[in-house]
């Protein structure tokens, strides 16, 4: 069963309210004016993952009766590190705030709290395919219950990721492309102009390539969500475009790639491509491969 995209929104390295463009890395996330959607008193207490997540969910049209299903490979890293720093710095007394905000489902829980939303509320954390796992869960939900679901992914960057990369000899251009951000899609069983026709997590590259070829996509958006870049495989005559040029590298960048694909299929051309059907090929190291097929309805 297809899931139709009704709205999508992201916070990313892409400039706000501008055509999609390739970005020079290292690049900072282009934060929106969160005050437009979140009361300032609340913003001050929120970590960046929470801000990005709530803003993009609201911008994509989240309602109080939409289940919230999202992915995050590494969760709320800033607060996790802040709490560890607290343990190191003050062995007796530590502030509970970063601990509360460190749990992986902080963002999905805060979105529910913000909306007064009592529905299914889930965070998947399967490294670089956390978004695909969320989308598979969301499509199953729509098959069971119809209606709408908010599905997305959020990732937060901390300098320690750079430090780890440098110490483990990750090449510097990969490391410089490390980024962060969020994206949410409001998907529903009710038809719209763009459909997600399939989403699969494959355990091997060959299986994933085969799924892409079978889909008859006119463009493959390829990318790496893992900390080390693997070369994109060949898809024969089908043109490819590396989506990390637009999103940077992080474990939830395939959510942003889905938001990009939605814009392309809604008529926006990127690098002169105007496909009617797109496959997202997301590789996380040699371990997991996400394949998501989107098409014009």
């Amino acid at each position: 069963m297809k899931a139709y995209i009704h709205h999508a929104a992201s916070v990313s390295v892409q400039p706000l309210n501008a055509p999609i463009q390739a970005v020079e890395f290292p690049a900072d996330v282009q934060h929106p004016d969160y005050k437009d959607r979140i009361p300032p008193a609340k913003i001050r207490r929120m970590g960046s993952a929470v801000k990005m997540g709530i803003w993009s969910a609201l911008e994509a049209g989240a309602q109080s009766e939409d289940p919230i299903i999202m992915g995050s490979g590494l969760g709320c890293l800033k607060d996790s590190e802040r709490f560890l720093e607290g343990l190191r710095g003050a062995p007796d007394i530590v502030s509970p705030t970063p601990f509360i905000q460190s749990t992986h489902n902080t963002v999905s829980g805060q979105i529910a709290l913000h909306l007064g939303n009592h529905l299914y509320n889930i965070t998947h954390t399967q490294n670089g395919v956390s978004f695909e796992a969320s989308l598979i869960d969301a499509m199953l939900w729509l098959q069971e219950k119809q209606g709408y679901v908010m599905v997305g992914g959020v990732e937060e960057h901390i300098p320690l990721l750079h430090e780890i990369a440098d110490n483990l000899n990750v090449n510097s251009s990969t490391r410089d492309a490390y980024s962060e951000g969020s994206a949410f899609l409001r998907v529903g069983s009710k038809p719209s102009d763009v459909a997600i026709s399939a989403c699969t997590i494959a355990g091997s590259r060959e299986e994933a390539v085969e799924l892409v070829l079978q889909s008859k996509a006119e463009l493959v958006l390829t990318g790496n969500s893992g900390p080390v870049v693997m070369a994109a495989p060949s898809f024969g005559p089908v043109p490819t475009l590396d989506y990390t040029r637009f999103t940077g590298i992080h474990m939830s960048n395939s959510a942003q790639a889905a938001a990009l694909a939605f814009r392309m299929l809604s008529g926006e051309s990127i690098d002169h491509h105007q496909p009617r059907k797109v496959a997202i090929f997301n590789q996380y190291l040699d371990a997991s491969f996400g394949v998501t097929i989107l098409e014009q309805n």
């Binding site: 490979g73 749990t103 992986h104 965070t123 998947h124 399967q126 490294n127 796992a133 997590i201 371990a287």
Partner: peptide, 25 residues
């Protein structure tokens, strides 16, 4: 990474199957 646990399990048992990790505290 929370998802690393599945990667280790799948590598050891030779599993190529759909897997995900849920983290809701």
């Amino acid at each position: 990474n929370l998802g690393q646990i599945n990667d280790r399990l799948c590598a050891h048992y030779g599993w190529n199957l759909f897997n995900t990790t849920m983290s809701t505290a």
